[in-house]
C-alpha cells in the first residue's frame, strides 16, 4: 500500500497502519455497520494493559462486553479497555527507517549494564 506524505493512519485490527481516507468503502468484503474497536487486557494487577486484538461492536458498552466474551473466556484478564480503532494514530510503514533504525546501534540504551536486584518482577 502506498502512503502519501502526511496521510493520516489508523490502526485496524492490530495489523499495522491503514489510511483513514481514500480507502474504498467496499473492498470485497461485506460492509459493516459496526465500528471497529481495539481491545487491551490487563492480565493481572501490576501489569499494564496489553493489546490483544480487535472486534466489531455497535458502541463502547457492547464493545467491552464483546471483548469479555471474545478475549477473556479463559481467565486472561482482570481489566479491559476498548478504544475506537479510528481514534488511534499509527506510525507509517514508510517512516519505518527514520523512526526505528537510529535506535539500532545504541546498545547503551539497554539496561544490560546494571545488576537487577533480586526479587524485581515484570522487568
Amino acid at each position: 500500500m502506498t502512503q502519501s506524505p502526511g496521510q493520516d493512519l489508523s490502526a485496524e485490527g492490530g495489523h499495522g497502519a491503514v489510511p483513514t481516507t481514500g480507502v474504498p468503502a467496499t473492498s470485497g468484503r461485506a460492509v459493516r455497520d459496526w465500528p471497529l474497536w481495539e481491545v487491551f487486557v490487563r492480565a493481572r494487577r501490576g501489569l499494564s494493559h496489553g493489546h490483544v486484538g480487535s472486534l466489531h461492536a455497535p458502541d463502547a458498552e457492547m464493545a467491552l462486553r464483546n471483548a469479555r466474551d471474545v478475549y477473556t473466556r479463559r481467565q486472561e484478564g482482570v481489566s479491559i479497555w476498548v478504544v475506537p480503532a479510528a481514534a488511534i494514530s499509527a506510525s507509517s510503514p514508510d517512516e519505518k527507517d527514520a523512526f526505528f533504525d537510529p535506535a539500532g546501534d545504541k546498545v547503551y540504551r539497554h539496561p544490560t549494564f546494571y545488576d537487577v536486584p533480586e526479587g524485581v518482577e515484570h522487568l
Binding site: 459496526w34 472486534l55 466489531h56 461492536a57 464483546n66 466474551d69 471474545v70 473466556r73
Partner: peptide, 11 residues
C-alpha cells in the same frame, strides 16, 4: 447476526 454475538451466545 455478528461473529462477536455468536461467541456471546455460545458462552
Amino acid at each position: 447476526p455478528e461473529l462477536e454475538e455468536d461467541v456471546a451466545l455460545a458462552n
